[in-house]
Design a binder for these strands. Structure first.
Length: 515
RNA sequence: GGCUGGGUAGCUCAGCUGGUUAGAGCGCGGCACUCAUAAUGCCGAGGUCGGCAGUUCAAGUCUGCCUCCAGCUACCA
């Protein structure tokens, strides 16, 4: 079996500035990508920016620069965020790249050939002020009887020529696809929503516009620009070499194993995208996971409320590993979650400083002081030691099971079960007493703990790369002995290596006085 | 309105095909320990498992009704 894994984030619309939602989505993918790499997979991790559309065209105009210069600039914000968060994407795609234009036009041709595209006209109530179409049922009536948008803007009936994708012909085939691939959409409740949406019948999809220019021209009809989703979604195959379906990357990684998305764009990924692909004679991705949103101190986040969470600020305040841990641990992945200062500090201090950091610290400190600053050699393991070691060894399987269904919070909990058990084991064995009574036994206990911590630190690497590395450094684990392969039976911590005086890797967060 | 999911300890949540005294983490109370980042461990208090009525020898776990909450119900992404 091929151990390959292709995971993607959505491409982020450059007109937005990066916020916690972007960081969250990519973080989940990053943890997964790191996990799979450590687990021996060849991984392709893709993120990028969506740079086309009328809004971008207007923003560029407002900024007095041409659209390409504008997107060059704002796209950088997202690459900066990725750097700060220590994301390990293998490619950063931009929809303005030539390779993407080629891919979009090629998939368009395929859809045309298969008969899934036709030229018609798009009609609806359009509000010039809002630059948006509204449905009949959304409209309000003005006192003079004329129609108004929900925003109060006047609307007019507009018709423009547009190409359509024959989505209406795909409901049966999509339902069959969902049926044959029960885990295609996660979580389950999102899957139900999508299935019920498709069962309700599908309408054809407008996939071109003639009212702006900033985008990929429709092949053979330059008057039309390919419209949003066909352009945006295609990035997932562009990045692996499409239209060259014989390209090495394409053959290796398509279909993608996972498209990670926010719940707001699930439909586009779970309905339109597989329809486009199947219609084009291409394979659909294996899974789309829709995660939830964050609130801030119990309040819905919105620009108008001014309570947008800036990930850079979080990282500056609490530390990168701490923020990464919190975001993936605090909330059952898939649910909405609340960010609060209290919860953040609680996780930092309880889980990280007290449980995990202190465990490493107390054990390595004892080794440093009592074992001549060298990793002790163990004697025969007692039943208690064996229980501890077995628990450490069993953790990988438990964590892997959770990661395979994107249950990050449960994966971390599975690790913490072992951490708590380790602290209990320390107290039960009381190595500080053994120091006088039975030094050989003390060595065995401390070795058992060090070996357990080695397992823990290797397992926490995908979530907290920096702190995990520092713990492994302190244990004297070589850089090339940190993959999950190093957790297989046989591999174990070598005795005799130097153990320096440990330094805390998870400082407690102390609230500033008078804040 | 329709569809879907959910209402379990103060808080956040686990509880597979129904079966001994309903669990975890945090918070709270007590005890122990002193290796450690005043960290850790142990014990404990705390729940009519939203409500009512059923099925069953037995229901948090099944059925019906009611109630409250959330999401979805198509072209801004």
């Amino acid at each position: 079996m091929d151990k390959r894994y292709y995971v993607t984030t959505p491409i982020y619309y450059v007109n937005d500035s990066p916020h916690i939602g972007h960081a969250y989505t990519t973080l989940a993918c990053d943890a997964l990508a790191r996990f799979k790499r450590l687990d021996g997979y060849e991984v392709y991790f893709l993120t990028g920016t969506d740079e086309h559309g009328q809004k971008v065209e207007k923003s560029a105009q407002a900024a007095g620069v041409d659209p390409q210069a504008f997107t060059d600039r704002v796209s950088q914000n997202f690459r900066d965020l990725a750097d700060v968060m220590d994301f390990t994407h293998d490619d950063f795609i931009r929809t303005t790249e030539p390779r993407h234009k080629a891919a979009c036009q090629d998939i368009w041709r395929r859809l045309e050939e298969s008969g899934d595209i036709y030229l018609g006209s798009y009609a609806g109530w359009y509000a010039v002020r809002d630059e948006a179409f509204y449905g009949e049922d959304e409209l309000k009536k003005a006192p003079d009887g004329s129609k108004l948008a929900p925003t109060g803007a006047p609307v007019e009936w507009v018709e423009e020529p547009s190409y359509f994708f024959r989505l209406s012909a795909w409901d049966e085939r999509l339902l069959k696809f969902y049926d044959e691939n029960p885990d295609f959409i996660l979580p389950k409740t999102r899957r139900n929503e999508v299935v019920s949406f498709v069962k309700g019948g599908l309408m054809d999809l407008s996939i071109s516009r003639t009212t702006f220019n900033w985008g990929v021209p429709v092949p053979g009809n330059d008057a039309h620009i390919m419209y949003v989703w066909l352009d945006a979604l295609t990035n997932y195959i562009t990045a692996v070499g499409y239209p060259d379906t014989e390209a090495a990357l394409y053959k290796k990684f398509w279909p993608a194993d996972l498209h990670m998305v926010g719940k707001d764009i699930l439909r586009f990924h779970a309905v339109y995208w597989p329809a486009f692909l199947l219609a084009a004679g291409l394979e659909a991705p294996k899974r789309v996971f829709a995660h939830g949103w964050w609130t801030n101190e119990g309040e819905k986040i919105s620009k108008s409320l001014g309570n947008v969470i800036d990930p850079l600020e979080l990282v500056n305040t609490y530390g990168l590993d701490q923020v990464r841990y919190f975001l993936l641990r605090e909330v059952p992945f898939g649910n909405d979650g609340d960010f609060s200062r209290r919860a953040m500090v609680g996780r930092m201090n309880s889980d990280l400083a007290n449980d995990y950091g202190n465990l490493a610290q107390r054990v390595m400190s004892m080794i440093h002081k009592n074992c001549d600053a060298r990793m002790p050699a163990p004697g025969p393991f007692s039943a208690d030691d064996q229980v501890m070691l077995d628990a450490a060894k069993a953790a990988l399987g438990n964590v892997r099971e959770k990661m395979d269904v994107q249950a990050f919070h449960e994966a971390l909990e599975a690790i913490w079960v072992v951490i708590r058990q380790s602290n209990g084991y320390v107290d039960a064995q009381a190595p500080w007493k053994l120091k006088k009574e039975d030094p050989a036994r003390m060595n065995t206990v401390l070795y058992t703990l060090a070996e357990t911590i080695r397992h823990l630190a290797i397992l926490t690497q995908p979530f907290m790369p920096d702190a995990s590395a520092r713990i492994l450094d302190q244990l004297g684990v070589a850089a090339d002995a940190r993959s999950f392969g190093a957790l297989e039976s046989g591999a174990a911590l070598a005795s005799g290596g130097a153990v320096a005086k440990p330094e805390g890797v998870f400082p407690r967060y102390v609230e500033e006085e008078g804040a």
